[in-house]
C-alpha cells in the first residue's frame, strides 16, 4: 500500500482531466451543428440550403404551357431550340403571376446582333452578318420575325 500513500495528487489530476473531458464533449455537442458529418466532413443542411435558393428562369416548358401559339410558330423555324428566356430574360416571376408582372418589350437591334454579329471566332456554319452593312440601320424585325426568322415564310404570309 506504500505505493499509493501519496496518491491524492493523482486523483486530483485525474479529476481535472475528467472535468476537462466532460467540458470538451459538452461544448462540442453545443457548437458542432447537428447535421455536420451527415454525409461527410461538412454540414449536411448546407446542401438543402443551396437547393432551396429561388429560381429566376422558369424554363421553356413553363412558358410553353401557356404560350402554345408561339411554340407553334417557333417549332417551324430555325429558332426552335432557342429557349424563350434566352431572349426574353428571366421570367419566373411572370410565370408565377402572369397578370401583374409583364415582360419588357424587346429591342431586336440589341438582341439579334448578340448572336448574329459576324465574328471570326464563331463557327463558320453559324449564320452571321455585319449588321451595319446588312440592314442599313433598319431594325432586324423589319424583315425577320424573331420566333421564325426565315424571310420566305413572312413574304408568303403577306401575299
Amino acid at each position: 500500500m506504500k505505493a499509493f500513500k501519496d496518491a491524492g495528487h493523482l486523483f486530483r489530476l485525474a479529476s481535472v482531466f475528467l472535468v476537462g473531458g466532460v467540458l470538451f464533449l459538452a461544448l462540442r455537442g453545443f457548437l458542432v451543428p447537428r447535421s455536420f458529418g451527415q454525409y461527410g466532413h461538412y454540414r449536411g443542411n448546407a446542401i438543402k440550403e443551396t437547393a432551396a435558393l429561388p429560381i429566376s428562369y422558369a424554363g421553356h416548358q413553363v412558358c410553353e404551357s401557356c404560350h402554345a401559339d408561339i411554340l407553334e410558330v417557333k417549332s417551324k423555324g430555325v429558332h426552335k431550340r432557342v429557349a424563350c428566356e434566352a431572349c426574353h430574360g428571366p421570367l419566373a416571376k411572370h410565370a408565377d403571376d402572369p397578370a401583374s408582372i409583364q415582360p419588357a418589350k424587346l429591342d431586336t437591334a440589341v438582341l439579334c446582333v448578340r448572336c448574329h454579329e459576324a465574328n471570326l471566332a464563331k463557327p463558320k456554319s453559324f449564320p452571321q452578318v455585319v449588321s451595319a452593312e446588312h440592314s442599313g440601320g433598319a431594325p432586324c424585325d423589319t424583315c425577320h420575325q424573331p420566333h421564325s426568322p426565315a424571310i420566305v415564310a413572312v413574304a408568303g404570309a403577306s401575299q
Partner: peptide
Amino acid sequence: LTTACCENCP
C-alpha cells in the same frame, strides 16, 4: 430543371 446557362444557350 436544367442549369440557367444550359437553359439559355441558344
